[in-house]
Design a protein around this nucleic acid. Sequence first.
DNA 1: GATCACGCAACCTGTATTGTTACATGTGTT
DNA 2: AACACATGTAACAATACAGGTTGCGTGATC
Lengths: 146, 146
Amino acid sequence: MRSDSRLSRMLHVLIHMDQHEAPLTSEMIALMLNTNPVVLRRTMAGLRDKGYVQSEKGHGGGWKLSRSLDEISLLDVYLALGEPSVFALGPTSDHPSCLVEQAVNAAVGDALREAETHLLGRFAKVTIADIARDFGVRARDHGIQF
Amino acid sequence: MRSDSRLSRMLHVLIHMDQHEAPLTSEMIALMLNTNPVVLRRTMAGLRDKGYVQSEKGHGGGWKLSRSLDEISLLDVYLALGEPSVFALGPTSDHPSCLVEQAVNAAVGDALREAETHLLGRFAKVTIADIARDFGVRARDHGIQF
DNA sequence: GATCACGCAACCTGTATTGTTACATGTGTT
DNA sequence: AACACATGTAACAATACAGGTTGCGTGATC
């Protein structure tokens, strides 16, 4: 099954926005991400609604951060995207009449729920600034080639 | 994103096979699972190859367990299905040239890998017999209506 | 030898995600 | 005021993929 890369993409964009003083247009960003402007706007809409970024129209317009990267956690971005489903594994039907199926769903569901809680808990502890710092290390290792 | 229900389905089948002395045909099982015989055989092939079930052709043929349910863990079934991807979330591309993207993938990848290790560790501790026991409890609560 | 059941490859389908087009609205430049 | 730039959004098209279907082969039992 193909995985949803929107979370990674948005983190990627946010860090680039932080490195760049002037606003970034959807077209520039789409080029970086190998996607297209409309899809990008669609995805960024969630972040805008949550107040993490803002967009401006017209000349010199585009996207910019409305708050510092250390005030945005990985979880915040995840939530802004509408809490996309974490797992590619799942139960059969929502309301099985078969008792065996119910028992199976309970067992698998419990394990998945626990794993999800764990993962989101970790997401909550990582700020995008943390990731940006790691980028700084990598850049230094590569002789600062931006 | 739509989730892969094969794991739950296989657990479901295995427990039913345990409750049933005679072999179950693909057609009967497909009927139970609301799927069709060919898809079922496709999925069961992995379990057969690992030696958890066996199939026989001709009259009175079908599928039966080749080992006890307390000797099969949830992890075993997962592995038999070819280790389907656990997460619906993922990185962008495998070998990004952008250092920001690399940092993002590292951060997200670490969190996902940890969550996966955790989840599979839990899968390893649950046998299908455990789930079958829970089914027994549910059946008793419902006046044993099989 | 007729029927039953699995094995497997090739193809079709339904649907969710992603990409595209088109047009409206707002903003800054000339 | 006219124009170029940029986002916002709806409607539609293309794509990807899990699941479903058909068809034929093989072996087992009756």
